[in-house]
Nucleic acid binder design. Sequence first.
DNA 1: TTGTAGGCGTTATCAT
DNA 2: ATGATAACGCCTACAA
Lengths: 352, 352
Amino acid sequence: MASPKIVRMTAPRLRDVAQLAGVHPATASRALNPQTRQQVNADTARRVLRAAESIGYQPNPIARSLKTARTGTVGLVIPDLTNPLFPPIVRGIEDVLTPAGYNAWIVNTDNDPQREEAQVEALRSRQVEGLIVATARRTHPLLARLHRQGVKMVLVNRRVDGLELPSVTADDDAGIGLAVAHLVGLGHTRIAHLAGPQHTSTGVSRARAFRHALIDHGLPDDPALTVECGYWSESEGARGLRRLLDGGRAFTAVVAGNDLIALGCYDVFAERGMTCPDDVSVVGFNEMPYLDKMRPPLTTVAIPHYEIGAEAGRLLLDTIDEPDRYPRSVLLAPSLVVRASTTPAPCDAASR
Amino acid sequence: MASPKIVRMTAPRLRDVAQLAGVHPATASRALNPQTRQQVNADTARRVLRAAESIGYQPNPIARSLKTARTGTVGLVIPDLTNPLFPPIVRGIEDVLTPAGYNAWIVNTDNDPQREEAQVEALRSRQVEGLIVATARRTHPLLARLHRQGVKMVLVNRRVDGLELPSVTADDDAGIGLAVAHLVGLGHTRIAHLAGPQHTSTGVSRARAFRHALIDHGLPDDPALTVECGYWSESEGARGLRRLLDGGRAFTAVVAGNDLIALGCYDVFAERGMTCPDDVSVVGFNEMPYLDKMRPPLTTVAIPHYEIGAEAGRLLLDTIDEPDRYPRSVLLAPSLVVRASTTPAPCDAASR
DNA sequence: TTGTAGGCGTTATCAT
DNA sequence: ATGATAACGCCTACAA
């Protein structure tokens, strides 16, 4: 005598579990939730869990979110995923968030404020619980507004002027210090800086660090030897170096704002028949992948990408858990990776 | 006489809009939804829209999803975000999905089946409406199961044996054909292949295309000149080339399964004091970024990354809209980018 | 054309 | 310890 069985083709719901275990849905809910499980008789709980298991019950996160107003998601706002700097950061973030029960939405803004606004709007409408933002500019009305509205966020790599937000950045001062010390140690005295965009905190702090480092080494700080790039990109790096070369001031080494800017220099060297490092030494920043296979392999300042992501994840979790905690920021120490793009300055130090 | 105003600190809801417009929430709902707007008096609709606008109403997608059982999200399953192949593909996907009202969740599996299963589970529990999968292996129980369960998906770059799923791939046959023809044109007759993993369809199809191309050019197909790499990675490329070199069979050129495998060869050249292309010419596949700055700049088969993503997005939308449509697959034409890693074969053709 | 009512699946708050 | 009930915000037959 086969027992009749009604087959539901949709996913099993809480009430199915409850029915099977012979309890009320509310009880099943309590039994299933580790937080509230001790409110329920151990035997009952076991029965419910077995029932859930047996029919493959998975709670519907949408219904849960509607009720609890929590989604277990955070947004990741990245300026440009094709910049190889970010994947390891993303990885670090995920490795921290996943065990805490959060998932991350990654969005790409392509350095376009309009696109950024739309993307952030999409994230908010999907009720993310917090934001990790890598697109900060020094003046950033959108982020300022979000902050005022109480959106929880953590900045990565860059900061916003006058906004007290938790952030994780590399220690630019230390990193540029390493780069300059390395070049000075090689005998360079005329060192140029291809600065990143000065509307980003990182562009500014690296430029400032560069000036300080020159002074520390007793070198003159010639403003003509610092040129700003409009973006953190190869093409802007190339433009910057052309301006530097056309400026007529002699220099034997370049500290680039980041690796992409440094790689842009390589294009100009090719254009003008110059060779690196013989004509000009170059140092990058970030230690992006594949630098060891470049022509020449690029000397650079390495930063702990993965750890930056992991720290950002931790800060965001803290911010979500304790909204009133005073914003901490984390500074991570860089290190220098010496490769073949730097070499001792020519003896005729005034050359080039 | 200021009108009293009750201030809600939470997001405005449909009922707030309705109240402000002096209509029932149901009417407001209809007015707000373009699909049902013509059911409502044009004036009323206008009033509702203005009311919504004025208080910045955004429908709560969670409540909507609970009701409609649709989420407007799809999952993107990527083996390794640090592979620069993927960002432009992701971009293409997003550019197609966004206008259609969908957002994409990106997850990273790191080539780890366990992690993949967990990530896919997370996506499904968040009720994504479809999956774009770039991690397919030729035998892939997880994907087979998902397919049986009716999960809508599109494969990118790789396929699953015996599973009729829509897919978007580069035309491997044509691409490898270009590479081999180029090398033959340069006089190479002993050409090796560093094949990608044979558990991926791409690895197999490129290896098969390689054999066919040799035959087409009347060259002997020496099995000892094909070596399989365990992953699509630099380190496996390096291992493969070492095995090839240690095998004692002469060859003057290598067709690598992809760019990363090709770059792995560069490491071995450095190790063994060989120079590329003088000792061995190398061709890659994919045209990943920065190849032009490598030492030497890598000749490679370029594929339209962005278009691959865009096509995948379109296929998925089709699959969602017309679930019963017969699975189409799209093959995109590659092109050859000649750089400095390939050069005419040495006159002494039997050398090396 | 508009309003009514019920429900999507879960959980929080009562009461028992 | 468990059950009943309502509510999260929205949508949609159905009724008016």
